[in-house]
Design a protein around this nucleic acid. Structure first.
Length: 296
DNA sequence: GTTGAGCGTT
């Protein structure tokens, strides 16, 4: 984690130059409530400098942002997040209340006007981005647990440890809830799983722990969508081929008498079939379906 | 492409 002291303001670097402030805000908001955001632009060229400062309403959100946004992929870049080592944007106060001398004198007497202007600007940004993309976004994620006490443990190890603390009933509920969500809103669930690989990982591991799935089943899921489609098509093709083959083969193997009999049966009118007892009826219907077009 | 522009004082 970061070696810089936690603060509500975080530095976000490696932002692709074509990203707008609204787009960055959307990403920042996925972690927690954002109070202010500033993407830096080059005054001369007007181009983005590729980094921004985001102020969260609380320290937990900022910590969560540093944890979760640091590996966020956007365009062909990976965001770099850290606590800002500068003073905050709006109120000029540093969060470390004791013995703060890091804010400049100007910051501490920052004019109300400037605060208002910045605040208004930000509100404008908020409403812009809200109207733009409210449809399929997920609400802010819970801040999560600080992992720094277990610095040696990898993220997946932590998930394993935590899951092993749960009893069977709770594990089952976890999987059940996920299943329910997938049925109720598949698109949203897809987004959620995509944006939180930790959750996807935990759910798969939970299913394994519960014996609901095996590693061989999981292997089949690791094939990409295109390949699955291809496999499916191939499978139906082969199945159809076999079906026809079997029908023809069976027909060839039948004696002339049997063929005549079947012909007779499938030529029965619906009325004739309907008066038969149910079990006979279903056999005839099956024969009709099977040989209907093949017998001559 | 890795840490901030600016106003002008209750």
């Amino acid at each position: 984690m970061s070696d810089i002291k936690p603060s509500k303001v975080i530095y976000v670097g490696s932002i692709p130059y074509d990203q707008t402030e609204e787009q960055v805000l959307e990403i920042a908001k996925s972690v927690g409530p954002v109070v202010d955001l500033k993407l830096l632009f080059d005054k001369e060229t007007g181009k983005s400098k590729g980094y921004a400062f985001v102020e969260y309403s609380d320290l937990e959100s900022a910590q969560s942002a540093v944890r979760n946004l640091s590996r966020y992929n956007i365009g062909n870049r990976t965001l770099k997040c850290n606590f800002s080592n500068e003073t905050t944007l709006l109120n000029g106060n540093n969060n470390n209340n004791n013995n703060v001398i890091s804010g400049t004198i100007t910051d501490s007497v920052l004019g109300d006007n400037r605060k208002k202007i910045r605040n208004n600007k930000f509100k404008q940004l908020q409403s812009q981005s809200q109207s733009q993309s409210q449809s399929q976004t997920i609400p802010p994620l819970p801040p999560g647990i600080e992992l720094s006490n277990n610095a040696q443990q990898s993220a997946s190890d932590v998930i394993t440890t935590e899951l092993n603390k749960l009893d069977r009933k709770r594990l089952l509920n976890l999987v059940k809830d996920a299943k329910k969500m997938s049925t109720m809103n598949p698109t949203l669930m897809k987004t959620l799983l995509k944006e939180t690989p930790q959750l996807s990982y935990a759910l798969v591991e939970a299913a394994l722990l519960l014996g609901l799935t095996g590693s061989s089943q999981l292997q089949t899921l690791l094939v990409d969508d295109g390949k699955i489609d291809q496999l499916q098509q191939q499978k139906t093709k082969i199945e159809n081929k076999n079906k026809n083959k079997n029908n023809n083969k069976n027909l060839e193997e039948l004696t002339l008498e049997q063929r005549e009999l079947i012909k007779e049966v499938i030529n029965m009118s619906d009325d004739q079939v309907n008066i038969l007892p149910d079990d006979k009826k279903s056999v005839i219907l099956q024969l009709k379906a099977l040989y209907g077009n093949n017998i001559v």
